[in-house]
Design a protein around this nucleic acid. Structure first.
Lengths: 378, 378
DNA sequence: CCATGCTGGCCACCTATTGTA
DNA sequence: TTACAATAGGTGGCCAGCATG
């Protein structure tokens, strides 16, 4: 059909209107030196007189890179990944990047590879992979490494740039809270064993118990779902020696509370519970749930920082763009400055437990105390 | 800073290996007729011998369109938008499109315009805007309409392509469930008044009450948050005449249950409650919540269909791509066929309440009966 | 050396034209 | 007419070289 190619003005049109050569327009656009202030102004006003917008495809074609960040994320709507994704998308856009997302339903190596390839085809400037399970993380090692790639929620043992919540510390904090309330030990309903998040939280739980010289009960396996928490509660509720439970996420804690309520076990009277995530509804469960709150914004910020700084050895991404023209005098691209367009200003440095060679950033989560923890009965 | 331009093979390389002209390669790639089967095969094998991948930027430059769909979504992590987004992203990728996402934190006209402009700059093939409030929806009317644009969760009164959950019907179903349980009337905790979703659910609630000849109590305003539900519950719980409440989403229902529990009002013994969304935890609230489940996958599918069909009058998006080469014989681009690459096969037609001139698609939600509804006390 | 202009090649692909068997 | 080859111009922007006040 018609396909009226309604192309916008090009550099040449701008040049004509401004009475300069297209060369000069290009120089203005790319903040090259050697442009007189008057000329620059003239060009700039021609630009917005015409409503000129540089053609991204053309630029990408010649530079070989698009100012887009690729994200590979699991298809689920689990609170953690979703929150991370939302935070990252917003911050990336604020830093002047486009964000391209590929969801993978199956968390296996082939899916990840395909997703990453897709992004590579699009000439992205960098890639973030939310890699919560082993197959996903493993697949990353065999990938052609032509652009910076950072992992989120990935394998803590894997080298390479990664940003994550410090799951182990989170597990310790949760467990400690329970022990300090006077419980002799703490039971744990874990996430799926192949998830790093789950393994980390369980490891923290166990470490804290051992440090306190407590017995380490068997792990109750779960899968993040409220149903799993409910099922776990059905038998934990029958065991008199169970007085404290750390659920690896709030969803399972929700199911647990449900089961305990059904069995007539009071929380926190008979059994104390701590969750993980601080989902919005956790403040209004019955009883309001004491839980661990991870700072997803900080993790997203760390991931973006790592990408821009090129922390995985591939070399960083060039700094801010300047299509707007507001920042006239700003000279060359300074690495690390990701606040290109309309950034919200204060990008506080993320509190990190810095590794040395590898650029791992673990954001320490925080305890939110509510009403589901009390002293043991009796 | 070497910037080793590690460019891959181009059409010319493929042509050389296959012993044909780059013209022929192009023809094969674009499924042009007039290519002998042997030649096509030769080209195809040269393609994967070299690991050739067509350069998207170059194609975009010539055609003026990238095979990417732009999404504008609110920055929140509310269950509805998040679920919609996840579903859409997955389906779009399965249909062979890239997905570019821009989150907007402030749901105002300026933010939407900027987001849409961003996408337009990227030469996207189509745009989806999750437009749950008036300013967002309104801003769309003034936009240059060069590519198909569909609205999700937008203004039902606005013309133009839209896919959405049938909120009104959902509100009616929820209310009817309560009335049929024997309640004399139903109270309603609504979402923010400027949200179309909230307005629709409230309208359905009111319509159903009127249809049944019931008194219409004043609306209790909320904001989707559990806190709002809790606050509402604090006074609804003190009013003896309140025996049935329809909360506009499960989060508020959660807070409501909490408040009622605190006040010693039994659910469903004293008060019955129905929510909306069917969030994962609703099955394990205390008591398990009767709620309305919207089919977000269906809405996402409808949105994608509308985009590809060009339902808003701008003309559809060209059909499947064929980089893979698997579908050799498939001839010209047939409009409406969005199942290009590895689609999950059965794209059931979405059940729609078809409007006539305007392409609105309302997906009817369904009741999920659990334990929070019973007959009125006494 | 500074601020520009001009010319031209290049990026990878699309498409149209002409010619050939 | 069919199935190509060869050639060329166009897409918009980048960059290098060289000339000019």
């Amino acid at each position: 059909m018609g396909e009226r190619t309604r192309r916008g003005p090009s550099m040449f049109d701008v040049a004509r209107v401004a009475g300069v050569s297209h060369q000069t327009v290009s120089r203005v656009l790319n903040a090259h030196p050697n442009v007189r202030e008057v000329t620059r102004t003239r060009v700039l006003s021609a630009i917005d007189e015409l409503g000129y917008r540089p053609n991204r495809a053309a630029r990408t074609l010649v530079t070989g890179r698009d100012r887009v960040l690729g994200v590979v994320a699991p298809g689920s709507t689990l609170f953690g990944p979703v929150s991370l994704l939302a935070a990252f998308e917003e911050q990336a856009v604020n830093a002047g990047f486009g964000v391209s997302v590929v969801r993978i339903r199956d968390l296996d190596g082939a899916s990840v590879r395909e997703a990453v390839d897709r992004h590579l085809d699009g000439q992205v400037s960098g890639i973030v992979v939310i890699a919560p399970v082993a197959p996903v993380a493993a697949a990353l090692d065999e990938l052609p490494r032509t652009v910076p790639l950072v992992t989120v929620d990935g394998d803590p043992a894997r080298p390479g740039a990664m940003a994550t919540v410090d799951q182990v510390e989170g597990g310790r904090v949760a467990t400690r809270r329970l022990l300090e309330a006077g419980h002799r030990t703490v039971w744990h309903i874990s996430g799926p064993p192949d998830w790093f998040d789950a393994a980390g939280r369980a490891a923290g739980w166990e470490a804290e118990l051992r440090a306190a010289g407590c017995e380490v009960p068997p792990v109750v396996p779960g899968d993040w779902s409220p149903d799993a928490g409910y099922r776990a509660g059905q038998f934990l509720g029958r065991m008199p020696e169970v007085t404290a439970v750390f659920a690896a996420n709030d969803a399972m804690a929700t199911g647990l509370l449900h089961a305990l309520h059904e069995r007539g076990r009071a929380v926190p009277g008979d059994i104390s519970v701590v969750g993980f995530d601080d989902v919005p509804s956790s403040a209004h469960l019955i009883p309001p749930l004491t839980t661990i709150r991870p700072d997803f914004e900080a993790v997203a910020r760390a991931a973006l920082d790592l990408l821009v700084a090129g922390a995985d050895g591939v070399g960083g991404i060039n700094g801010a763009d300047n299509t707007g023209g507001a920042n006239g005098t700003g000279g060359a691209n300074n690495t690390g400055g990701a606040n290109g367009t309309g950034g919200t200003g204060d990008t506080d440095p993320v509190p990190v437990a810095s590794g040395e060679a590898v650029a791992h950033r673990g954001v320490v989560p925080v305890l939110v105390d509510r009403d589901s923890v009390g002293p043991p009965p009796g």
